[in-house]
């Protein structure tokens, strides 16, 4: 029983990382209907920026986090302006290929000697790890921080989208871009803001991921990114609380199926569950039925 509870803790810890990446994914998707595969590479850049902020600039955790968020927000806006904006009215597949191109670009540029070089880097222990033990159960402060940050980010994002003027403009843009423009909403500005926020979220994810799993390499974002994407779809893509729940579910499913069913098949099991859920409820767990996606 203790072991089972410990596995639940493991699952939630893993799931909170997925959730953190996933809410950024889902927000960008929700507003501009673009699966941004480069999101997981902005996540990677975020982790690397955090690394440089901590080791070279000697910043503490919070300043490094903000530094990385700012750098990534800027990067996200630049990428959107340069690579995605000209293609806004093209076919979905064209945009998708462009995001893959950007992904390859980011992965390969970070490897160059001028930036990080080809070797793996170790994310510095910016907050010393402390382990708590309660009745045979064990968890670390980093795991708590991860969960805390994902919940806070999720709530903040939900507040931003549902309660503020910018959020209202975002929803309008998401609903009908042309009509929103006619209503006097500056579409370009809203999309830039969306990308800035989404990329800053990715940066947060990158730093938290670096603290939990201190190994930096250019392809570090790919698998977590894919899982987070699955989580976003599972929760109903475009819905922020859905992404949170989706992320936690994927983390739990992965952990529990690894331990109690088969470690070799755990990824397959996660995908089978996803497909079944989509077949039963094609818009995801929290998706609205009548919305045509």
């Amino acid at each position: 029983m203790t072991e089972f509870l410990q596995q639940i803790i493991n699952g939630i810890s893993l799931g909170s990382v997925y959730a953190l990446i996933s809410i950024g994914y889902t927000m960008v998707y929700g507003i501009i209907k673009l699966i941004n595969f480069a999101h997981c590479d902005i996540f990677m850049v975020g982790a690397y920026t955090g690394y440089f902020a901590i080791t070279t600039l000697r910043l503490g955790f919070i300043p490094a986090l903000f530094f990385s968020m700012a750098v990534c927000a800027l990067l996200g806006v630049v990428i959107e302006r340069v690579a995605y904006k000209p293609l806004r009215n093209s076919a979905k597949e064209t945009l998708l290929i462009t995001t893959i191109g950007v992904e390859l670009f980011l992965q390969n540029i970070i490897k160059t000697k001028a930036l990080a070089g080809p070797n793996v880097l170790n994310f510095p222990e910016v907050i010393p790890t402390a382990t708590f033990k309660i009745g045979g159960l064990q968890f670390s402060n980093i795991q708590l921080i991860t969960l805390g940050i994902s919940v806070i980010m999720c709530a903040a994002l939900q507040f931003l989208i549902s309660k503020t003027n910018t959020g209202r403009a975002m929803r309008a843009t998401s609903y009908d871009r042309d009509a929103a423009a006619l209503m006097g909403i500056n579409i370009n500005r809203i999309i830039s803001v969306t990308f800035a926020i989404g990329s800053a979220l990715a940066a947060t994810g990158g730093i938290v991921f670096g603290m939990l799993y201190p190994k930096l390499e250019p392809i570090m974002g790919v698998m977590p990114g894919l899982k987070a994407f699955v989580a976003a779809v599972l929760g109903g893509i475009g819905i922020v609380p859905g992404a949170m729940v989706g992320g936690l579910s994927i983390g739990l499913i992965e952990t529990l199926s690894k331990v109690y069913i088969s470690s070799g098949l755990s990824d397959a099991i996660a995908f089978i569950i996803l497909i079944i859920i989509l077949l039963v409820k094609p818009t995801g767990l929290f998706g609205k039925r009548n919305v045509k996606v």
Partner: peptide
Amino acid sequence: DETYNRGDSDFKALLTKIAG
């Protein structure tokens, strides 16, 4: 004798089992 998948970063699930 258990396995994980490429790109995994979290091995706590299986390690918890090994610890016991």
